[in-house]
């Protein structure tokens, strides 16, 4: 492989991994608080369509990102109300959110189909972008790529170095004990759900405004589900989320490069396109194979409703 191909593949891998990092870190935080939100796909779709619409009308991609964030938080709030206030089953409510979000985004997005947004210029970080091989790929990137790195550090700091993060993890491990020592379990879970929604919205916005600056129905293409799988694969640890997201980005990009290279292949393009989905299944199998890996690492109260007694 020559240097320029390596560099452009690395560049593309980082870009493809970025929405996964942002979304999966948001899901990680809400799962750490004990809430399993299967609505990631719907939240991303809402984020993507809202961001596209606002960017198209205002011309400002950052307003778009904000709009995407708030749109996804709004639908996440429905999920929160159902599961936290009304004690609904989290799996069912998450599925409902996915169906609703994908449907509503398709409905809202209809007038925006076949419109393209101008590309948002990358931000070049002086000096280090001149590094050989990796400079251009890592340091001449979209702002949201840098944001995903900042977010990673912020989540690590929050979960493992801050008091609030400790409380959040306590709520996820044992809501009853957290409640007993005076922490507002439901309110903390609401905040965690909203944070997950906000990140899913930014991830969706990245897709429709920065990655492929257009809106197509179904453009999230399972990334919300892949992000959910990534959290399991990462055994609920931020660093592994990051590594996993780039591995997935790599799988997605490799198949695109092979398809785009005009290489004569004995197997069909659809097979290559299905690789990211197979990869998700394979990593789930590898990580879940040992029952204890999941049991020891997943937040104890994950997916279980909680109601304060008395």
């Amino acid at each position: 492989m020559d240097a320029s191909l390596f560099s452009s593949m690395l560049f593309a891998t980082v870009v493809a991994g970025t929405p996964l990092i942002i979304v999966a870190l948001g899901l990680l935080v809400s799962e750490k608080a004990g809430v399993l939100n299967l609505g990631a796909e719907g939240m991303m779709a809402m984020g993507a369509v809202a961001a596209f619409a606002v960017t198209h009308h205002s011309g400002n991609p950052w307003l778009g990102v904000l709009a995407g964030m708030f749109a996804a938080m709004a639908v996440a709030l429905i999920f929160g109300f159902l599961t936290l206030t009304l004690q609904a089953n989290q799996v069912a409510a998450g599925l409902a959110l996915s169906i609703f979000g994908v449907g509503l985004s398709a409905f809202i997005g209809k007038p925006f189909e076949s419109i393209a947004l101008p590309a948002v210029p990358a931000i070049r970080i002086p000096f280090i972008a001149d590094l050989p091989l990796i400079g251009e790929a890592l340091y001449n990137q979209q702002a949201l790529v840098y944001l995903s790195w900042a977010l990673f550090w912020a989540v690590v700091w929050f979960l493992y170095r801050s008091r609030a993060g400790l409380v959040l993890r306590a709520v996820g491990e044992s809501p009853a004990s957290a409640h007993a020592i005076g922490h507002p379990v439901i309110r903390i879970r609401y905040l965690a759900v909203l944070f997950g929604g906000a990140m899913a919205g930014i991830g969706g916005a990245f897709l429709s405004v920065f990655y492929t600056p257009m809106w197509v129905e179904g453009m999230v293409a399972g990334r919300g589900w892949i992000a959910l799988a990534l959290v399991v694969f990462a055994t609920w640890r931020p660093l592994r989320v990051m590594i996993g997201a780039y591995l997935f980005g790599g799988v997605m990009i490799t198949q695109l490069f092979i398809q785009g290279s005009g290489m004569q292949l004995d197997f069909p393009a659809q097979f290559l396109s299905s690789l990211p989905y197979w990869a998700t299944i394979i990593v789930l199998v590898v990580i879940s194979r040992n029952v204890n890996t999941i049991r020891l690492n997943s937040p104890v109260s994950l997916g279980k409703p909680y109601r304060a007694e008395g």
């Binding site: 609703f100 449907g103 509503l104 209809k110």
Partner: peptide, 12 residues
């Protein structure tokens, strides 16, 4: 796609 919106609402 409005029917998908209503389907989601129904489940909510």
């Amino acid at each position: 796609s409005i029917s998908m919106v209503f389907q989601g609402l129904l489940l909510f």
